[in-house]
Amino acid sequence: MSDSVIPTLFGDLSHDLILICDKDGLIREANVRSRQLLGEDIIGSTLLQLLSTMSHTKGNAFLRHIATLSPGATSDAWELFFDGSDTAPLCVSIRAGALSADYRVLIGGYEPPQLTSLYHEVLAINSELTNLIRQLSKEQARLSNQIERLMSTYKEY
């Protein structure tokens, strides 16, 4: 069994995104899952090009951070939003390890799109509830005014 087959198989069997890039973020290798989720033509792209606009500032900070890793060192997990090939932005919790002075391996677990949809649904429900709280406040104020008027009319008689 060839030594080079083993890492390829690991990569292809993984549900996580696995990317190898240089320390400037230029993608050199990508496993099957990465290509499925981010696009078949990601080799040669920079990490920043794969990120959604909302993650560019954070992506730059991430690249600055991983450039400082010494060989063998790893980073904390960073959440970044990638532009998915056929989905809404994909939230990926990504960690980096320094393979050498010049190369980094990035491994990221992504949030299932269904979970992202649920997040948004919860936010929408919260928004509706806060609308109702506002309407209720208004109705309560109107009711208080009416009761005050009723009480003063009652006292007059």
Binding site: N126, L129, T130, N131, I133, R134, S137
Partner: peptide, 8 residues
């Protein structure tokens, strides 16, 4: 959002 609604 919730705090703003309560202060409405």
């Amino acid at each position: 959002q919730s705090v703003m609604a309560h202060l409405y």
